[in-house]
Design a protein around this nucleic acid. Structure first.
Lengths: 198, 198
DNA sequence: TCAGAATGTTACTGGTTAGTAACAAACGTA
DNA sequence: TACGTTTGTTACTAACCAGTAACATTCTGA
């Protein structure tokens, strides 16, 4: 009989592995539907390794959301960087990139909206995170509709918010096959060009 | 000691009471978050009364969704009936009524999108229900954008879909206080009037 | 009045969940 | 080497969950 050494994973590495496992499962299957044991199994680690890094499942959920938030803004910056100082092109690009992502089979919509639905209590910490996140997006839109010289930048920014959230929602029901999502970049382009300037 | 007669509730009435209780709880708190026991308690009935009417929780979920679908189309017809044969006014009215509902504190978004998020498996029966429901709305929009004489009725209908779904999603994060939702009827009105005719 | 059906009540099963205690093995460092 | 720390492993608790069995009570109709 072979007496195999136990493989040991250091603190920092374990945290990363657990968060990655949690991210995949939470996003794909929903938070309530995923047990800590499932995360442990996917991570290939031990249950205690989880509870030594995160004090509770809630803690892990919050860390997951924070990670998602970071990733969102990284991707946002990538989209923006394709057309520096060109708000019209930046906005269209954002929706083009969103549509591309939404057409991927592993896409499961907006994790911020998803978590809002799973946690109806608006006082819950994750809900506050979602709220500030959405507000930040709204501001980023407004910044650009203003730069565009739109006569009603606020209304235009809100319209973009609705279109974005609609795109996320639509991907849930139609998945890869959404005609609406395919049209979104065009819709936004026409919307921007049709909206009156001051 | 008073020997009180047990109150007996007949089959049909029990079914209604249970469905109402389930509807409130499922919609307000999410399906996974609500136990059969919670429904039993809210209904003021007995657990066996539930399982004599519905073979399983899944059965109850399906009945809940079917009820919601019926209610949606009743409300839809009410909105449409306000402006017979006037597609422009009908569409604007629909969004005005939606915005009004979305501003109510007990509003918890679109139960069809919500259930999609809670049940990621697209093969699940409730998901098929959601899919046909969304398709029906999309068709109803298309019917009216076509009647409107829009040059691209399909694109316009999809835009309305996205705005509708966006409105539902936005209500989740901002609740009663959503500026975007307040603007939605105006946004739709301008969109319809600005879209080119053939 | 009596028999069968419908409903109420209690108590239970087997499974799952979040979280923990206790100890064993490996590591790092003095 | 030797000791304290970190990590792995096992086994457990207490709560919750969907669903059922068995029996008690009430109703209905012949």
């Amino acid at each position: 009989m072979t007496t195999s050494k136990r493989t040991r994973v250091p603190r920092a590495k374990a945290q990363e592995i657990i968060l990655n496992a949690a991210e995949e499962l939470f996003y794909q299957e929903g938070i309530h539907a995923v047990s800590v044991d499932a995360i442990v199994e996917r991570a290939g680690l031990n249950k205690m390794s989880v509870y030594r890094q995160f004090s509770s499942k809630s803690d892990l959920i919050l860390a997951y959301m924070q990670k998602k938030q970071t990733v969102f803004w990284q991707e946002w910056e990538q989209s923006m960087a394709k057309h520096p100082d060109q708000p019209r092109e930046q906005l269209i690009q954002f929706f083009a990139d969103l549509a591309a992502k939404a057409s991927s089979p592993e896409f499961r919509g907006c994790c911020f909206i998803n978590v809002s639905i799973e946690f109806p209590d608006t006082a819950h910490p994750v809900r506050e995170l979602v709220c500030t996140h959405q507000k930040r997006i709204s501001d980023a839109f407004l910044e650009r509709t203003t730069a565009l010289g739109a006569a009603n930048p606020c209304e235009l920014a809100y319209t973009l918010m609705l279109l974005m959230e609609g795109t996320y929602a639509d991907s849930q029901t139609y998945g890869t096959d959404s005609a609406a999502i395919r049209m979104v970049p065009t819709i936004v382009e026409k919307l921007l060009d049709a909206s009156p300037r001051e």
